[in-house]
Every structure is written in structure tokens, then in C-alpha cells.
Simulated scan of single mutants.
Amino acid sequence: MVNKQIPKFKNEDDERKFWETHDSTEFINWTHAKKITFSKLKPSVKKISLRLPEAMLEELKLLANKRDVPYQSLLKIFLAERIEKELHRV
């Protein structure tokens, strides 16, 4: 039985914090839910400023050019691979 109203949120961060501490079953009747796929949904991104040595940036651009991808995309791939490796170290 759903008996609570979902509050209005100022931004995505406020909504995320709310759902981290609340059970959705108090707000949503999941018995009527349908499974769907969001095929074109992109993850939330945040723009940052990153200072790199010029030589490192030039090497990154060279590697990206060899793979025919933008250097920022290649940097994200490298970071994702390293993060995965570090998180699953034994």
C-alpha cells in the first residue's frame, strides 16, 4: 500500500540523497511496474578541469588518433580500466 507522496527535489543530488535513506516501497506501488529498457540513456557526467603535462597530453592525443577516437574518450577508457583493476585487486 502506497501512502506517502514523493517530495519535489531541487536537483539530482538531493534526489539521490533522499533515495539513499528511504525505501521506495513506501512511495511506489511496484506491483504495477513494467520492465523497460532505456537504450539511449547516458550516465550523468560532471565536467572537471584536469591539468596534465603537455607531453602527456600530446602522447594521449597520438594514441587516440591511432585508435580513431577523441582523446577525452580514450582518457575515460583508460581511467575506467584502471579503476576496475584497482577495485578488484586482491
Score class of each variant (00 low, 15 high):
residue 6 I to C: 10
residue 78 F to G: 15
residue 6 I to R: 15
residue 79 L to T: 14
residue 16 R to F: 05
residue 3 N to M: 00
residue 30 W to M: 06
residue 86 E to K: 10
residue 75 L to I: 11
residue 60 L to M: 10
residue 17 K to A: 11
residue 36 I to W: 03
residue 32 H to S: 02
residue 71 Y to A: 14
residue 76 K to W: 12
residue 37 T to K: 07
residue 1 M to T: 09
residue 76 K to C: 14
residue 83 I to Q: 10
residue 46 K to T: 07
residue 83 I to Y: 14
residue 82 R to G: 02
residue 18 F to H: 07
residue 63 L to W: 12
residue 3 N to F: 00
residue 27 F to I: 00
residue 46 K to I: 01
residue 43 P to I: 00
residue 41 L to D: 10
residue 13 D to Q: 13
residue 85 K to G: 00
residue 44 S to T: 13
residue 37 T to D: 03
residue 53 P to I: 04
residue 41 L to E: 12
residue 72 Q to M: 08
residue 74 L to Q: 07
residue 61 K to H: 08
residue 57 L to N: 12
residue 64 A to V: 08
residue 62 L to M: 13
residue 88 H to G: 01
residue 6 I to A: 12
residue 72 Q to A: 09
residue 22 H to G: 02
residue 49 S to V: 08
residue 11 N to V: 00
residue 72 Q to I: 05
residue 60 L to H: 10
residue 71 Y to I: 05
residue 58 E to C: 00
residue 39 S to Q: 05
residue 34 K to C: 06
residue 15 E to T: 01
residue 20 E to W: 05
residue 61 K to Q: 10
residue 43 P to A: 02
residue 76 K to G: 06
residue 37 T to N: 01
residue 5 Q to D: 15
residue 18 F to Y: 11
residue 7 P to Y: 02
residue 87 L to D: 09
residue 75 L to M: 15
residue 30 W to D: 06
residue 62 L to A: 15
residue 6 I to K: 13
residue 72 Q to T: 11
residue 62 L to K: 15
residue 30 W to I: 07
residue 88 H to K: 05
residue 64 A to H: 07
residue 54 E to T: 10
residue 25 T to L: 00
residue 10 K to C: 03
residue 68 D to S: 13
residue 5 Q to N: 15
residue 85 K to Q: 07
residue 68 D to T: 14
residue 81 E to G: 00
residue 34 K to G: 04
residue 45 V to P: 03
residue 54 E to N: 13
residue 49 S to H: 14
residue 12 E to H: 03
residue 73 S to W: 05
residue 76 K to N: 14
residue 50 L to K: 09
residue 13 D to I: 11
residue 20 E to Y: 05
residue 49 S to P: 07
residue 56 M to F: 14
residue 70 P to R: 15
residue 6 I to D: 14
residue 18 F to K: 09
residue 24 S to Q: 12
residue 17 K to N: 10
residue 56 M to C: 12
residue 84 E to Y: 02
residue 54 E to A: 07
residue 31 T to Y: 11
residue 54 E to G: 02
residue 30 W to H: 13
residue 71 Y to L: 06
residue 75 L to V: 11
residue 61 K to S: 06
residue 73 S to T: 09
residue 24 S to C: 11
residue 37 T to H: 06
residue 64 A to E: 09
residue 52 L to W: 12
residue 8 K to Q: 12
residue 48 I to C: 07
residue 58 E to W: 01
residue 51 R to G: 02
residue 64 A to Q: 07
residue 69 V to L: 11
residue 19 W to V: 01
residue 38 F to G: 03
residue 90 V to D: 15
residue 53 P to T: 08
residue 59 E to C: 00
residue 31 T to I: 05
residue 84 E to G: 00
residue 67 R to G: 05
residue 81 E to T: 05
residue 50 L to N: 09
residue 71 Y to E: 03
residue 76 K to E: 14
residue 37 T to L: 01
residue 65 N to W: 09
residue 54 E to H: 08
residue 22 H to T: 03
residue 8 K to E: 08
residue 16 R to D: 03
residue 22 H to Y: 08
residue 57 L to Y: 10
residue 84 E to W: 04
residue 55 A to M: 08
residue 90 V to Y: 13
residue 14 D to C: 02
residue 41 L to N: 12
